[in-house]
Nucleic acid binder design. Structure first.
Lengths: 189, 189
DNA sequence: GTCTATATCTCGATAGAC
DNA sequence: GTCTATCGAGATATAGAC
């Protein structure tokens, strides 16, 4: 049920998704919805976002751990997302961005979860950048920049139905991080 | 009425905004809504997005025309948006991004307008980059990158309620464009 | 715990007088 | 053109049997 909700929220947003749709898609019994989520739709939303946010964070980790440096990891991540978008008819974008924008000024509980998720991704990104030798004061702004570009590129790609924003942005982000890495003194690698 | 609609769509999205709210806020007569927009909410949405999208495009033009080069224009634009966000309790972000994500896979008429708006901004950006001497094949991907980063930074800033994503990203985008400008042969300026 | 039925509300859209 | 009243659909949430 959480997975079905997360998937629908990502595609059509929070307001655009009906509870019946979630229980229908998830094959879960309608009667048990308010047993597990006494807080109703909002509580389900919070739980679904937390779950998909953490899953996405682990995906980031996986890509960075498998790559030789953060720059190639980013290039791969952008390219991977472009593939995922194209293969899903431009539906599988960021699991929280749509809800984040919808609720930034309306439903604070949901906005807060989205903020927590974004910050967990930022912390993960900054950690990998730091571990590659980039100094702490630079790593966090660089993570902010990288995630910003990624989120915006997904927004553009979904809207104009082309992977071009993701691929073009991915190249430049990777090159920016690459330049930062080249400023790292040799001993620290 | 169009302005009231555009404002509400930007803050709380398309699905999250009721028609009554729009006519209420706009002080317009309810009876005339379906006279001017026989297509109902969707037609009003299309018109509102087109209008605010074009207004925003002219704002971009204004900033670029007033700045000495595209790099400083971008820095100013990010900084201006950060101010606008902070001054509006993080409500006045991008006028189309929220609706774009909501409708990318649900309501194609709205998605298409958002795509048109984004593309008009991209064309404007690419034109200014070209006019500054950056070759055509580079200007468009650079515009894609710049707009992507901007859109994502707004998303992050609104969600975590901090201007940090915008300021950090603005600096880096400006420096990337600055580097591209330095590759321009002197004669072409 | 889960089901069915339903209460209550709000939405978008329409009808018809003026 | 604009107003008032209202329709019908679909939403969230609840009640009460099992």
């Amino acid at each position: 049920m959480l997975d079905a909700g997360a998937d629908l929220f990502r595609r059509q947003g929070y307001e655009g998704t009906a509870l019946k749709e979630i229980v229908g898609e998830g094959g879960a019994p309608w009667g048990s919805l308010y047993h597990f989520f006494p807080g109703g739709k909002q509580e389900l939303g919070v739980a679904a976002l937390r779950r998909s946010g953490e899953r996405y964070r682990r995906l980031i980790e996986l890509v960075f751990e498998g790559a030789e440096d953060p720059s190639t990891a980013l290039r791969q991540f952008f390219s991977l997302s472009a593939q995922a978008l194209e293969g899903s008819d431009y539906a599988d974008g960021c699991p929280v961005a749509t809800v984040a924008l919808e609720t930034a000024n309306t439903t604070d509980a949901l906005r807060q979860v989205c903020a927590e998720v974004f910050e967990s991704w930022l912390a993960t990104l900054a950690r990998f950048l730091s571990e590659a030798g980039i100094e702490a004061g630079v790593a966090y702004p660089l993570a902010l920049f990288g995630l910003s570009t990624f989120e915006g590129a997904i927004t553009l790609s979904r809207t104009i139905r082309s992977t071009e924003p993701l691929t073009a942005s991915g190249e430049i982000v990777a090159s920016v991080v690459d330049a930062a890495l080249r400023e790292v003194p040799e001993e620290s690698t």
